[in-house]
Design a binder for these strands. Structure first.
Lengths: 124, 124
DNA sequence: CTATTATTTAAGCAACTACTTAAATAACGA
DNA sequence: TCGTTATTTAAGTAGTTGCTTAAATAATAG
């Protein structure tokens, strides 16, 4: 870290500009990275996909569908809720989870691309 | 796991259908989740963003720009390369990294959304 | 009130991540 | 060749993640 790149082709102005630019977008990148790492888990991505298909599901349903324990599911849902990607509504003893559509600008294209990828592979 | 959801409103047919559907898309989800978890790291997302702006950068540049040690950067680049998100080309002692555009269908919308988000926040 | 059901929370733990420092590899120039 | 530079690899480690099981919380029915 003390020594920096001194190669002949290094473009000092370019590097400086990159530093400025990355500082500028850093907060946005941090927030997007958070959303991506949330959905970068196989179980949570499945939950998001299922919610995009079914509009709402409870932890119990998801436990059945994904073949996992209820606490395991609940902990994933907690992360998704805290990350603002899903919302929950309690109806009696049951808690229904659904996508938090307003916060899904990062995730939506991914779910879309999933559908597209599936269509492609179904066709071929 | 042994006991399944027995609530009154549970829709057995819906659950069964979801199971079938999730099994069908599981391989695609796994591969997308891998790409998302790769780009769900702040440093790696910054690298991808910088490469989308600069077309090619070496580990040394990135170390300078991001204020991190070269080995730390190198290890991130290795993951991105193994995940197929970037490619490298050696020129003399320098290794230039650039985006592997063909494999970026999952990541591209994210980088785009980053630009869009930045424009929004700049305007407001 | 008591038992049952749905969900969440907590504690423990194995596996993974992302850094560190040191060493290895490779290209270059004097 | 020797010393320098660019990069990668390796080993060690603190922190994080994702599960497990057990316990806590809350709603409902008898």
């Amino acid at each position: 870290m003390t020594k920096s790149c001194i190669r002949v082709f290094a473009d000092v102005a370019q590097i400086k500009q990159c530093k400025t630019e990355i500082d500028r977008v850093a907060p946005t990148i941090a927030s997007i990275a958070r959303a991506l790492s949330l959905s970068g888990n196989e179980v949570r991505l499945k939950i998001l996909y299922l919610l995009s298909k079914e509009s709402q599901l409870c932890p119990c349903d998801l436990s059945d569908i994904l073949g996992m324990t209820v606490p395991a599911i609940s902990q994933h849902l907690k992360k998704l809720r805290e990350g603002g990607l899903v919302v929950s509504e309690k109806v009696g003893q049951t808690v229904f989870y659904s996508l938090h559509k307003e916060n899904l600008n990062v995730i939506n294209p991914i779910l879309d691309s999933l559908v597209i990828t599936e269509q492609k592979s179904t066709v071929s």
